[in-house]
């Protein structure tokens, strides 16, 4: 099957000189569920943000659905972004508006600028948002304000917002790092189930190796901005884990 995402020698050097990402290359096929593991500061977040251009890479290229993002115009970048849902550690919902509206924000990339700005979403979009909420068990919360929800519920709204984009790829940046183990499992189960059912490819940044091994079909190990492992979960040996997590970055 043809890869939907090709990451080629992607690099990011911040203006203070730190190389957050150096020469990372991989391909992702449709429906793959890849976990990125590594220490904090290993470049996991930067990798995801370079893929959807929230962070401007300083080298390399990302090609998604046949579009190369390095030379993409601002408009093309928006077209790329709307096909990639993103989920955050801090949920990043708009606290003061309803859950439904937060989910509808996933459609912003598809409606005209003025209609989107005024929040005039079509009936069809609203129905779809509602059915996504139902699917995630948030039917009762539809009209509540986002800040009335618990952390786990907010993260499910985050997933719903990403799904509302009808994405081909979901980028999840530490989606369970702020949640307790039980809630974390619910979130990972939901994310995993939906990606499998809808055939959405997913890249998840994770702290916990165990969680990564449970869900992922593929594991990418990052260390100091470099990709040091790329393979199936069963190939991730303890030696490799200690290599990825080896010394803390500030020791050297």
């Amino acid at each position: 099957m043809a890869a939907i995402l090709q990451v080629e020698r992607l690099s990011k050097k911040y203006s203070d000189g730190t190389a957050a990402l150096s020469d990372v290359s991989f391909e992702l096929e449709p429906g793959e569920f890849a976990a990125v593991i590594g220490l904090s500061g290993a470049g996991k977040s930067t990798l995801l943000r370079c893929i959807n251009r929230l962070v401007e890479p300083t080298g390399g290229d990302v090609s998604f659905g046949g579009v190369r993002s390095a030379k993409a115009s601002a408009h093309e970048v928006r077209l790329l972004r709307r096909q990639m849902g993103m989920i955050f550690q801090g949920y990043n919902l708009i606290q003061r508006v309803s859950v439904l509206r937060n989910v509808l924000h996933g459609r912003l990339g598809y409606v005209g600028p003025v209609r989107g700005a005024l929040g005039l979403f079509s009936k069809q979009d609203v129905e779809e948002a509602k059915s996504i909420l139902k699917r995630l068990g948030l039917e009762q919360q539809t009209y509540k304000r986002a800040d009335e929800l618990s952390g786990g519920q907010q993260q499910r709204v985050g997933i719903a917002r990403a799904l509302c984009q009808r994405p081909k790829l979901i980028l999840a940046d530490e989606p369970i790092a702020s949640l307790d183990p039980v809630t974390a499992k619910i979130i990972m189960d939901n994310l995993h189930r939906i990606c499998r059912e809808d055939g959405i490819a997913c890249i998840v940044n994770l702290h916990q190796v165990e969680v990564a091994k449970t869900y992922a079909t593929r594991i990418i190990g990052m260390r100091k901005g470099k990709m040091v492992f790329d393979g199936r979960p069963e190939d991730l040996t303890d030696r490799m884990i200690s290599h990825i997590y080896g010394e803390s970055p500030d020791k050297e």
Partner: peptide, 27 residues
Amino acid sequence: VDEGVHEAIKATGAGKLQIVFQGFLPC
């Protein structure tokens, strides 16, 4: 306003006008 909110709306493919009205104004 939390930078995360900005990122989240941007990541949906929203344009500047939409980011301002849908992301920032309610906050």
